[in-house]
Amino acid sequence: MNILVCITHVPDTTSRIAFTNDNTEFDKNGVQFIIGPYDDYALARAVELKEQNGGKITVLNVGEADSDPTIRKALAIGADEAIRVNAFPSDSFFVANQIAAIAKEGGYDLILMGRESIDFNGGMVHGMVGELLGLPSFSPVMQLQVEGGNAKITREIEGGKEKLEVSLPFVAGCQEPIAEWKIPNMRGIMSARTKPLNVVEPSDNATHSAISAYELPPAKGAVKMIDADNVSELVDLLKNEAKVI
């Protein structure tokens, strides 16, 4: 089984978000970068599927050279080889085109990624890649079982979930509880250093959008504390100050 796992290189979930250069660039100063948490679920499930069925896992990142430590971590977790498309991931259309170009060459049985990146939260790339490849796409996928050329998927819907049956290949945007995140062990970390990480140039430079500036939301005012013995004061505030009830 040949699996492509697309990963993002994103600020840790606890990062303070700030911008520089007249609010046109993300401020990377002091920010720890990680594999996107949803992508990490996709990777963990790919490792489990490989353990069950054999095969090969390729991780793919569209990013600049500072993504390499994140990609090495994915190799340490259990991917066999990596491809980095050497470009800033400027918009979802650009990224989807790069993924589709790589996927067309690789003959993958499954193309997995997170349901969304945690920087832009668009959640659109899986559908775009599916359309470009003429393959079905599913998201958010909570469970994925593969039996031969078929798969059983559980997809989250609003207020519940649905179970699907589909044949391979397809594209899936993954989320918990598809698998438990895996922590690389020492053997994984050692072997990751020598696994291939191929850097390729973008197949196409077209984009559909451009960001002109970033903004931070207005600062939150101080919390108003209410005595636990006086809950009617809270009701009054919600009704007459916030006007939300």
Binding site: S92, F93, A96, R115, E116, N121, G122, G123, M124, V125, H126, G127, M128, V129, G130, E131, L132, S137, F138, S139, P140, R155, E156, I157, E158, G173, H208, S209
Partner: peptide, 21 residues
């Protein structure tokens, strides 16, 4: 949940720019 899964495909069919959120 449904629109997220669908609109990426729509944008590609139409050659349209897509922005979410």
């Amino acid at each position: 949940s449904l629109a997220d899964a669908v609109v990426g495909r729509v944008s590609m069919k139409l050659g349209a720019s897509l922005v979410s959120n």
